[in-house]
Design a protein around this nucleic acid. Structure first.
Length: 425
RNA sequence: GUGGCUGUAGCUCAAUGGCAGAGCACCUGACUGUGGAUCAGGAUGUUGUGGGUUCAAGUCCCAUCAGCCACCCCA
């Protein structure tokens, strides 16, 4: 038996009803946070040509981490590893008819060919939210505020999660001052990104390896130790002022070590972490001012972030913020007294549904005890019985599965009684 | 792509190289119009898969697959 079950594809997840309930719950809060700020829902194709990503997403992403396969005509197709390039294309295609600034959000599946581990699968769901057409620190702050709004809604406090913020232009200027040449910039960004993941000695050895002088290394260490560095960036000063006005300041903190991996970020970048530092980034995003032009449109600035479903779920679990979710839509189960009363049960179920209550009916005759047990196990609150006695009186027996009390009511009173029972608690 | 740990009943896990087991869950009955308790009984496995060593393998060896974890990388 067991050996005949075909394994699911590595790194995919089956969403049983209890898992699906969590996904739907997350989706609801993402929608609420997005719509509170006036963002519109959209989506793109799950399949894209590989060329869309080749331009700007970063080589690692396309070469090593995307699912790529030839279609029957021989063209290379990619299962989308991220949404931003699709968004850039969609905007570029209708650049003339869209009205800016554009505020769009989306939630859907993405694929990434990687070794699965904690907080990461090959198929995952991701919330994307972006504002296109404005280049201002205040727009950046609004996106961060949407992230903060989401955390607030799911019950995560600023003591538990924080959005760490930096700015690439600021870091570029600082690296200029240290006379670190442009050719070395990418390697140094990577070095910064790895600061907290390596031991201090290994980190310094790595710095030396990429060609930093000891003076440059000391300068870099000073930068990364300077929690007030943001005051030297007019963009970040305005960013934090706007975040304050938006009521999101308490979730934000300046962090000079935040760089982000994607090549297309040009200004402010941010990512959310749990304060224990236990998990990888909960969300990540920033400003990208060249992306629409890179896919063939006229230049348009943008800012946005993405949040995967897995890390946020781990964080919510850690802090006990995942609610008990009801996976049973039907509060009522109609029992089947015996084979002669099967259709009577079906008629009763139809009647109760017309009254507006989701109702399941036991699909075949069985011992009543078994049916009550089933009703209890699927999470129904009320069981209804129509046997010969009830039928003779044009009545229905109502059993409350929690209190175990049972009453018989006239058929025409059924709606009223059900309303009292189901809406009382 | 590299490394570590783990695969035994639906679930959680036992079994000094010597007859594959327990608890929970499940099914039946005690209870022919009533679920969670109790009691009695019952079913359940090619021990992930394929090889090898051995008189004998769940146990040792090799390979492979899967899950988890770390590295890599991160949307």
């Amino acid at each position: 038996m067991a050996n005949k079950i075909i394994s699911p594809v590595k790194g995919t997840r089956d969403f049983y009803p209890e898992n699906m309930a969590v996904r739907t719950w997350l989706y609801g809060h993402m929608r609420a946070a997005s719509e509170t700020f006036g963002y519109q829902e959209y989506d793109g194709p799950f399949l894209e040509p590989i060329a869309l990503y080749a331009a700007k997403s970063g080589e690692e992403l396309v070469k090593e981490q995307a699912f790529v396969f030839p279609d029957r005509g021989g063209d290379l197709i990619t299962l989308r590893p991220e949404l931003t390039p699709t968004l850039a294309r969609m905007v570029a295609q209708r650049q003339g008819q869209l009205y800016f600034p554009l505020r769009w959000w989306s939630f859907g599946p993405f694929w990434r060919y990687e070794r699965p581990q904690k907080g990461r699968a090959r198929e995952f769901f991701q919330w994307n939210i972006d504002m296109i057409g404005v280049n201002s620190p205040e727009a950046d702050a609004e996106l961060a505020a949407v992230g903060a709004e989401f955390f607030r809604r799911v019950g995560l406090s600023p003591d538990e999660v924080q959005i760490l913020v930096n700015n690439r232009r600021l870091m570029d200027a600082q690296l200029d001052a240290l006379e670190i040449p442009a050719a070395q910039r990418k390697a140094v960004f990577r070095l910064i990104d790895r600061r907290e993941k390596m031991s201090p000695s290994a980190w310094e050895a790595y710095a030396e390896e990429i060609g930093l002088s000891s003076a440059q290394l000391q300068g870099l260490k000073d930068l990364l130790g300077n929690a007030n560095l943001w005051e030297q960036s007019e963009e970040l000063v305005r960013f934090f002022e706007a975040a304050e006005a938006l009521g999101a300041r308490e979730y934000l903190r300046y962090a000079p070590e935040i760089i982000r991996g994607l090549d297309y970020y040009t200004g402010t970048v941010f990512e959310a972490r749990d304060r224990g530092g236990e998990f990888r980034a909960i969300l990540g995003g920033g400003r990208y001012d060249n992306l629409v032009a890179d896919v063939g449109g006229k230049p348009l600035p943008g800012v946005g972030f993405a949040m995967g479903d897995m890390v946020i779920t781990l964080v919510l679990q850690k802090y006990g913020r995942l609610p008990e979710l009801n996976t049973q839509p039907a509060g009522i189960l109609v029992t089947v007294f015996d084979a002669d009363h099967l259709l009577e049960a079906y008629r009763l179920a139809a009647e109760v549904r017309r009254l507006g209550y989701p109702t399941a009916v036991y699909p075949e005759p069985a011992k009543l005890g078994k049916q009550f047990k089933y009703a209890d196990r699927i999470g129904a609150r009320i069981a209804l019985i129509v046997g010969p006695d009830e039928l003779a009186q044009n009545a229905v027996a109502i059993k409350d599965l929690r209190t175990r009390e049972q009453t018989t009511v006239a058929r025409e009173q059924l709606g009223e009684i059900l309303r009292m029972r189901l809406e009382s608690s």
